[in-house]
Amino acid sequence: MRFGELFVLLMLSTGAIAKPPKAFVWRGKPGTDAAFEGLSEAAADLLRTSSVKYDVEIVGPYEKRDINRETLNVREVSLILFPGGGDLSPTWKQTKNYKRLIQEYVHSGGHYVGICLGAYLAGHDPGFELLPKGSDTDQYITSSKSSLKTEDDAVVQVDYFGKESMGEKRWLYFQDGAIIKMSPKALQEATVLARYSSNQFPAAVVFPYGHGRVGLIGPHPEANRSRGRGLDEPRRSKF
């Protein structure tokens, strides 16, 4: 089973799915960072092609529909995903007004997925503050024993704890992604799906927030083969 596929399934509430659930994928101002063009679409494809086959809509302030209390509600939308992007500071300026809305949506039973920049957005100061107290995100490249020290694009090895796997090694596209630093108490309620192989910091985690769930991923399981082409990837496996 693909890394991204299992992650999507973990995000779902238990129970039968009567119809394809609705998912929102957020996209910011077009053209602000050419290096990340297409990541919203790639994340949308990940959701559409999973076994759940989400009905996906890309939303945002420059799209046909933005998110607000009318559009983002648990009766209509099962999941909202914030993908990778540029720097945290300019993106936070675009998203800070969503903070209370996102908190209320997830607390009432919705699901939040953050990939790379989207994971940073779930943290504190600045961020949506979806992580429990005593937990936060931080840069992998500045963590102890990290295998990378550059913000340039690369691939990173993770230990993947899949449905039938206990620490299988996988390579994922990476660009200054986050580690998810969970407090001991928070880890008791969380599911760690992957850890960075070099230092065992969590790279992908799902945890509860009120009646909903939050899933954060530091690398890019949604990245297609065009990203990272030509990089040193000695044992790259399926995304």
Rank of each mutant, 00 (worst) to 15 (best):
A122M: 10
A122F: 03
P126C: 08
G127M: 03
E129P: 00
L130C: 07
G134V: 06
G134R: 02
G134A: 13
D136W: 03
T137D: 03
T137C: 07
D138G: 10
Y140N: 04
S143L: 07
S143G: 09
K145V: 05
E151K: 14
A154S: 14
A154I: 08
V155C: 12
Q157L: 13
V158F: 13
D159I: 04
D159E: 15
D159G: 14
D159R: 15
Y160Q: 05
Y160N: 05
G162M: 14
K163L: 15
E164K: 13
E164L: 15
M166K: 15
M166E: 15
G167Q: 11
G167S: 11
K169L: 12
R170F: 06
W171V: 08
W171R: 11
Y173P: 02
F174E: 08
F174P: 10
Q175E: 13
Q175G: 05
D176G: 03
G177K: 02
A178N: 01
A178S: 03
A178Q: 02
A178F: 02
M182I: 00
S183A: 02
P184I: 01
A186P: 05
L187V: 01
L187H: 00
E189V: 00
T191H: 07
V192T: 13
L193H: 04
L193G: 09
S197N: 07
N199Q: 12
N199R: 11
Q200I: 08
F201G: 03
A204V: 06
A204H: 05
V205L: 06
V205N: 01
V205E: 08
V206P: 03
